[in-house]
Design a protein around this nucleic acid. Sequence first.
DNA 1: CCCTGATTCGC
DNA 2: GCGAATCAGG
Length: 218
Amino acid sequence: MSWTDERVETLKKMWAEGQSASQIAKELGGVTRNAVIGKVHRLGLSNRVGGPAAPEPKPAAPARPAEPAAAPRAEAAAPRPAAPQPEEAPAAAIRTEPPRPAPAAAAAPAQPAATTPATVSASPARKQIVPAGQPLPPQPSAGEISPEALASVREVEKRARRLTLMELTERTCKWPIGDPATDDFWFCGLGSLPGKPYCEAHVGVAFQPMSARRDRRR
DNA sequence: CCCTGATTCGC
DNA sequence: GCGAATCAGG
């Protein structure tokens, strides 16, 4: 694959949006994230433009003096002028802490029977703001979940990595825990099952066969 | 371990 | 110019 104008454009756009090099590489296809990063640098847009803080007040240190006879690879010692600054959240992508139960839907089309949408529209008090990021799982009422699954979840949640929204990746469990209206809120974050948004325990409460749900009713 | 971007250097 | 290998870090 080569860097056609179109692909370069996509690259620029996504990079400007704050997408990671690997995400861009996936989108483009046929290139690795290294290729993307390389291209980004060659295009001279390494320092995420449009960003808030204007960096580099420092005069910068002398480049590489070229070692006389010492270690051939002594890069580590050479001071890098370009300090990559933590990188704020894309700002555009995520705006709000997700409200209570949000309808899962978009992302996982191949879901069997996700637990009830009944609880989804439940809270009339809180406004239904659809979060920009991954859809949140429905929060099934306790009565609909098997005792075993419930116990399993409680156990797992003790081991939860307590990730923040921004720390989630494709392979972390995105099950929300706690009340988003308070600080007592985080995401499970344990390894998610391949192709699933949640870890094993949370998949267990999120996805249930219709039959099981029917049997448990009442 | 997962991930991030940065840099080097042979092609 | 390109990007794998590597580095440095979260």
